[in-house]
Amino acid sequence: MPQQSGPDVPAEPLKTENVTRIVLRPIASPLPLGFFALGMGSTLLSSLQLGWVPTGQSSVLLLLVLIFVVPLQFVGGTFAFLARDAGSGTALLLLGAAWAGTSVTSLRSPPDEPLVIQAVFLLALVPFVLALAGAAAQSKPLFAVLLSLTAVRFALTGLYEAGLGNAFQIAAGWTGLGIGAFALYGGLALLVEDGKQRTVLPLFRRGKARESIEGDLRAQLTEAQQEAGVRHQL
């Protein structure tokens, strides 16, 4: 029997799913940029810690970190948030801000003189970076290893700044070179993956990260209504 319609018949209430549209804008992956910037910055600082750069030129090197590395980290982190990757965005922006802060304070202090305040800052930063590494390990183990190495480097540098000996600075420098090599591989693997639209060099993705490459669009959008910017509260 057909339904009645007219001024005396109440209209059927609209359902949320019938009036809501979620618009997604494709963007290039910001992770290769973030990886390469992290690797460059780590290598530059390692060259200073290992004594490969004369002490008198340390201010120039720190300016290079501020001008080249930090802005690229901020761009990578911002676009990671726009790509709905809160973990990568938080990590890249946190590291960019940390390097900006330590570079500025180092510029304003005598070269080769440990700073207790930097020791406090770097050692306090370590558990937060490890927390990000733990979260990344669930889906992006490669990124988790990179963050873990960065946390180790912060800890070693912090112990040097606390006045516990030059051996910690040398260890931090060699760890930084390892970070640079690791970041180079990771950035290259991500670039090749983005160009081929499939994993070529091993990235060891798991869970949602693997589904984002191998799954279809419908599978990736089923939980979009729970994401920040869509749901009513964060």
Rank of each mutant, 00 (worst) to 15 (best):
G173R: 00
A91N: 04
P54F: 04
G165I: 03
L123K: 04
H232G: 00
E113T: 14
A91H: 00
R21G: 03
T20N: 07
I67V: 15
I27C: 11
A133C: 04
T20F: 13
L92A: 04
A80D: 02
L63H: 11
T78Y: 14
A151G: 02
L61A: 13
P127Y: 05
V230H: 13
A83C: 07
D216Q: 05
L132M: 10
P2L: 11
G76H: 01
V65K: 05
L164C: 04
M1Y: 13
T199C: 05
A172Y: 02
L95H: 07
P32E: 01
L45W: 08
I213K: 10
G39L: 06
A172E: 01
G56I: 09
L38W: 14
N18M: 08
I170F: 13
L45H: 06
I170R: 11
A183C: 15
A224Y: 09
L132S: 02
L92W: 06
L38H: 14
S212E: 15
L156G: 03
A181R: 10
L94D: 00
D194R: 12
Q73I: 01
L221T: 15
L159C: 01
T157A: 08
A183I: 12
L159T: 00
E17C: 10
A219F: 04
L201H: 08
L92H: 01
T55F: 05
L95I: 15
V145Q: 02
G41N: 05
T90R: 04
A131F: 15
A86L: 11
Q73P: 02
G51H: 12
P54V: 06
L190Q: 15
W99P: 03
R84T: 07
E227D: 05
A167C: 13
A119C: 03
L125G: 02
L203N: 07
V70P: 05
A181P: 12
D112L: 11
S106Y: 07
L24I: 10
L221I: 14
A172P: 02
F143A: 09
E214L: 12
T199H: 02
V23G: 02
L201G: 07
S42L: 03
T175V: 06
L142W: 09
G39W: 02
L24S: 09
L177Y: 15
D194Q: 13
A136M: 14
F79V: 02
W174F: 14
G77L: 00
G163M: 02
S103N: 08
A28N: 06
S42V: 04
A219M: 09
P7Y: 11
F128D: 01
G176S: 14
K196L: 09
F143Y: 08
I170P: 01
A28C: 06
W174S: 05
L184E: 05
G187E: 03
A155F: 06
I117A: 13
V65P: 04
L234W: 14
W52E: 05
L164P: 01
L62I: 07
A155I: 03
A144I: 06
M40E: 08
L31A: 15
L156H: 03
A80N: 03
